[in-house]
Every structure is written in structure tokens, then in C-alpha cells.
Nucleic acid binder design. Structure first.
Lengths: 148, 148
DNA sequence: CCCGTTTGGTTATGCTTCATAACTATCTAG
DNA sequence: CTAGATAGTTATGAAGCATAACCAAACGGG
């Protein structure tokens, strides 16, 4: 028999919605990373690629602001996408400081495939919840995000 | 006028519940860190302290398992709590390999105060949501956590 | 009882995310 | 024209997390 037969309980922490959210987020993040790994993407590079595909020509600083990431860190993610041949940093004729980000054909291709996988993952994650329940979750997440 | 007057949109990413959850979690985490900072605690040290207060005598490895943290990393958090004088590592007479974790009086005191602050934070975070909506959110988070 | 295996705690190391400071080049406003 | 702001970059450090390796102690089959 073990030294501690008494069971350990996190019931007190379970009372906090934030604690449950963190645990759920852990699982979600690990699962999503597994989903994206075959495409050579991670959560942040996928988000970055998505923003570039959907907003062609945008600047890195706009990207950073939209994704709540520091400009300094965005450099790394754009670097990785550029080195993979999925994104290009074109000079911006209107502002020689800025870059205009565009995706390549290969980038659009991998994005389409990855997006389908992420959509499937998102659907699977909410499997068993009714549409109105999902709507409630979205509403709650929105409140938490802006409410601070 | 700026080079890019066209507005940047993350609408495509907003379609994913996971993306909204990550953004909400970012805000939550930053806000909770601010809440805990006056007490000299962070999310993980607070969770660790809570588990020790609520489960006196438990072993570090039990703690790690309950909080989904590697044993190797748990060492650091227990170290910090011990150095702050809030937790003690007592020898376990039944198993000389193991440690029995207990909180000190000072540890119980700071925990009570921090817990009240975290409870207030959790309540404020969900302000504006009905009880049944909160229940739905809890249910969804539970599904995501175990569903994988 | 002996010895291989397992377990508990620890140390070291590396990766990812994130924040900050500092620098250069460029733009903008007075 | 000059001062200050902005865009991109580099360097650095903190936190969270994972893995491998190590030692001491416990366990279990022969």
C-alpha cells in the first residue's frame, strides 16, 4: 500500500471557472498542436498565416496588434512562414519602413488544408453541445475577453 | 494618412471557438496575475498552495499529477512557496523517499486572503451571465477537458 | 534474502510564448 | 529643417512546459 492512501482533491480549485478554463485550454492547445503538426504549423504560425491570407498586404505591426502579440515576437513567426516559402515580405512603395505581407501559392495551399483540419478539430471539440449552448459559450468568452 | 487604410479583420479566426477561448484566456490570465501579484503569488503557485492547504500532507508527485504538471517542474513551485515560508517539506515516516507537504500559519493566512481575491475576480469575470449560462460554460469546459 | 524493477525527488537542459529595451531607417508635424 | 513618432528588427530575460538522467528508497519475484 502507498504511503498516502487518502485521495487528493482539487475540488476547491474546481469552484473557480478560471481553473476549469485553464485545464480545458491545456487540453485544447495540446490537441490543436497535434492537429497542426503534420502541416508544419503551430497555433501562432497558423493564426499568422490565416491573417495574411485573409488580409493580403497587411503590415507586421497590424498583424501583431490584431493577434495581441508584441511586434518584436511577430518577427519570428513571419520569419518562419517566410522560410517555409508560404509568405513573402514585399516592400511597401507608400512607406519604405513597412513591409506588405502576402502569401504564396504554397502558403494558400497549406492554409486551406490546415484550416479544414482546424475546423474539424473545433467541431469535434464541441461535439455533444447544442447550438444554443455553443452560442452561450461564445457569448461568455466574449464577455471575459472585453470585460477584463 | 497611413499606408494601409484598409481595416484588418480576424473574422475568419473568430469562427473558431478555440481562437476566442485563447483570447479570453489571455485576458483572464493577465487579470488574474494582477490580482495575485500583491500577495506574491502567481497562478501556479496559488494553485499549488491551494492544493497543499486543502490536502495537507500530500506528496509533490501527487500534486504534480493533480495539477497536470511534470514532477520536475513542481519542484520549482514548491521551492518558491517554501522559501516564502508558506510551505514545509516534512519527511514522510512511512516512505523515506517522499515528502509530506504542509502549509505554515503564514501560508494559510496568505492563502485565505488570496483566495478571497481570486473568488472576487472569478465572480467579476462572469458578471452579466445568468446562473444557467455559467452552468453551460462549466459543462462545455468539462467536455473539452475530458473529450480531447 | 538478493537483485532487478519501479517510484519519489531532484537537477540539468531545451523549447515555446511573451515582455521589454534599444537600435536603425523612415515618416510626419510644427 | 528638425523633433518626435512609427516600422521593423535584434537581443535578452522571465515563465511555463517537456524530457533525460541521476540517486535513494521501496517493492517483488525467485
Amino acid at each position: 500500500m502507498r504511503a498516502e492512501a487518502t485521495s487528493v482533491s482539487d475540488a476547491r480549485l474546481r469552484a473557480f471557472v478560471g481553473y476549469n478554463m485553464k485545464r480545458a485550454m491545456n487540453v485544447l492547445q495540446a490537441d490543436l498542436a497535434r492537429t497542426l503538426q503534420p502541416f508544419g504549423l503551430r497555433m501562432l504560425t497558423f493564426s499568422t498565416l490565416s491573417m495574411i491570407v485573409e488580409n493580403p498586404g497587411l503590415r507586421p505591426s497590424q498583424l501583431a496588434e490584431a493577434l495581441l502579440i508584441e511586434r518584436a515576437n511577430m518577427v519570428v513567426y513571419v520569419d518562419q512562414l517566410e522560410q517555409a516559402g508560404w509568405v513573402t515580405r514585399a516592400p511597401n512603395p507608400l512607406d519604405r519602413r513597412a513591409h506588405a505581407l502576402h502569401c504564396t501559392e504554397a502558403g494558400a495551399c497549406v492554409y486551406d488544408q490546415a484550416r479544414a483540419a482546424v475546423e474539424a478539430h473545433d467541431r469535434r471539440m464541441l461535439d455533444g453541445l447544442r447550438a444554443d449552448e455553443v452560442a452561450t459559450v461564445r457569448k461568455a468568452l466574449g464577455r471575459i475577453e472585453v470585460g477584463s
